[in-house]
Design a protein around this nucleic acid. Structure first.
Lengths: 213, 213
DNA sequence: ACGTACTTGTGTCATACCGTCAGTTTATAT
DNA sequence: ATATAAACTGACGGTATGACACAAGTACGT
């Protein structure tokens, strides 16, 4: 962890770090409760009980502060990796592994939906910083799934023509987008549990190429 | 089609409709070329060679104008329906149907990515108008796939425990999100063609429960 | 305890955008 | 040609933005 600095290069002390953290926290709350488009520096400062100038002491603009928030989320996402790597995807335990991955993803997304939404948008708009974060966010899981698929191919249990990374990426993308739009599933009268088991089935088959038991 | 009206309730004539259309067109260009957050009424007006006041004559705010744009996209999306309904999903033609659906989806998304991005965000943030549009956008395809799955179940070719709408919704969500984030696949070194065939395989199996030929 | 050096927070200002109005220009009907 | 309605514009008050100088607070050595 590099040292926390103010915009003009000074090293922030204990109090400064507390203010900075409070600003980030309030920014997170605002993003969650209002439209991303409407979040302004003044709002954040007010919410944190301070002034705009104080905000600009720690962040050059809102975007940068959001990047910071996203990086925090990224750090927490490390836990997702364990759900995908070192798992046994064949047989009965394969279904369990897929189920755990799906649950983990949905829960993680629900927990951080506001920030992840913004990351998604900014990444799609081409902002490099956010693309990087989104990529890293998925990377561990995608890589774990890719390896699992490659391994199954090596042992002859799966067609060689399946492209491991494409399949893994598509599955992870599906999980993320489904988590972000659970409301849409509501409108199709799909209940939470049905969505989870549907996703689980698709993930299990996508990885193994075989009907899950 | 109801008559085009100004904000203060008057019916717009030929010239007015042209200006309105030009404003919408410029809004579309701006959303495509700059960050959604930064698109302002003044920018749109300037781009269209008119004044902000003129914009407010036809739209109460930017959101409403974006809704209008999204509705245009929705109208064009009718073509997607044909790619999913009345298809034969079994056997060799099933793979072709899935491939056509994937291609259609990716192309459609690429063509309208900027607006669809905004629709996605606003829908995720809970804006009813955009949720509705997004839902309708997917609805025809989701329903077609749901029916296909249900039909396969009725004829005993697919496990009864598969939830048709959940599966169809997840697949369509996967297609949309994959299309919106093709750059992410770049970073995983997945080429366009590999993505298409990977998605095709997942869609074909998701619908039929059988390995595509 | 006190003064000094440094960090943190505030008040203020120029600028830019928003949304509205009164009023001018352009089209249409008689 | 004239009346009437539609379309557009310039300008304005109000407000958020972002930058800066300076005041208030804090830690630390003596």
């Amino acid at each position: 962890m590099t040292q926390v600095r103010t915009v003009d290069g000074r090293i922030a002390g204990r109090r400064g770090q507390a203010t900075r953290a409070r600003l980030l926290e309030c920014l997170g709350e605002l993003i969650a409760s209002t439209s991303y488009r409407d979040v302004t520096v003044i709002d954040v400062a007010r919410q944190a009980g301070t002034s705009p100038a104080t905000f600009y002491q720690y962040f050059p603009d809102i975007q940068t502060a959001v990047v910071e928030l996203a990086n925090e989320v990224l750090r927490e996402a490390a836990a997702l990796k364990d759900l995908a790597s070192e798992q046994n995807w064949t047989g009965r335990s394969g279904g369990a592994a897929a189920g755990a991955l799906v649950d983990g993803f949905l829960d993680f997304w629900r927990q951080h939906d506001a920030i992840l939404r913004v990351v998604d948008l900014a990444a799609a708009e081409g902002d490099r910083r956010f693309s990087r974060i989104r990529m890293k966010l998925f990377n561990s899981v995608v890589q774990a799934l890719t390896e699992a698929i490659t391994e199954l191919q090596r042992s002859g249990k799966l067609d060689a023509e399946v492209h491991p990374a494409a399949t893994a990426g598509a599955l992870v993308t599906m999980l993320a987008a489904s988590a972000a739009h659970t409301k849409a599933f509501d409108s199709w009268s799909v209940k939470e549990g049905e969505l989870r088991s549907g996703l689980t089935r698709l993930v299990a088959w996508g990885v193994t190429g075989r009907k899950p038991s």
